[in-house]
Nucleic acid binder design. Sequence first.
DNA 1: CATCAGGGCCCTG
DNA 2: CAGGGCCCTGAT
Length: 317
Amino acid sequence: MRNLIRQAEIIIEVNPPFNFVGTVHKPSHFPAPSSAFGEDGFWAPIRLDNMIYGTNLRASPVGVVATIYAADPVDASILDALSAEISWRFGLGLDLSGFAEMADADPVLKTAAHRWSGMRPSCAYSLYELLCITTLLQNTVVSRTVKMMRSMLERYGAAVQLGGHHLYAIWRPEVLVGIEDAELRALKVGYRSKTFLRISDFFVNNPSFEQALRQLPKEAAAKRLREVYGVGPATVWYLLFESLKHLDALEHISPWEQKILSRLMFDSPLVPVDEIRGFATDAWGEYCMLAVHYLFEDAFWRRTHESIPWLDELIRL
DNA sequence: CATCAGGGCCCTG
DNA sequence: CAGGGCCCTGAT
């Protein structure tokens, strides 16, 4: 168990509009002991250069204040790197003014856009870490994903006590390289064990993969992602939006999202995916995935204080 | 008890 | 390019 001490505070300015809660807390995400959110903000361990830093994000008048926790004092260059990394992962550098203007006048988006104005696509994880999560999402139900995630964190993750929360940093790819397939399968991840071994090997051998992808346009990044074993259309879609912040990454709509978007956009149980995509790209253009994200998170948030039977039925935790 | 799809993807024919 | 197989689980 790592004992992390408060070391520094970073102010990150964010261009308006900005919605702190909508950015750091995504109601649609499955629960995992890798981050926590409450009255005292967002807590998560973040890996940088082989070190684990505890982070606490809170809203500030100019954007975000990030408190950094570490075992030892953190020098200025590391703080700069952490600031840049937090800014990227939480989409704090994005200019959403164009989207806000468009969404305010859009009949489908209006309500969600008002409520969450300035919400950004965000992901506290590195690309490798998010890829591990999407691997756990593949071809299963959420309840099993939660179990697999927990057992892998307990076995390979790094326990961190942070803000009174018992959290885990996701394992580094090096940890899974060279282990026996059977060892992973014992955690009941099934055929995904092979994917974990292959992607971990890939990331160890391509340490700058994520940085390289951040520089690429969407199609080029998608192509590189597809070359990674275990990454198909659904996973690419998650990674392009949540990790790489492509606001128009709506090439793929998987069955679960299809059902939910059919309700949210057409008030209908099931609309063909081509129709959903066509509508979204026509109406929302370069922001089509961001728009879908607003509808999605707003629905999951509403669900926490009003009854939405059709959504309850689709979640089945 | 058995069956089966689930927030995919790989591989084969 | 279609479709079978894959690990395991809980819903039926």
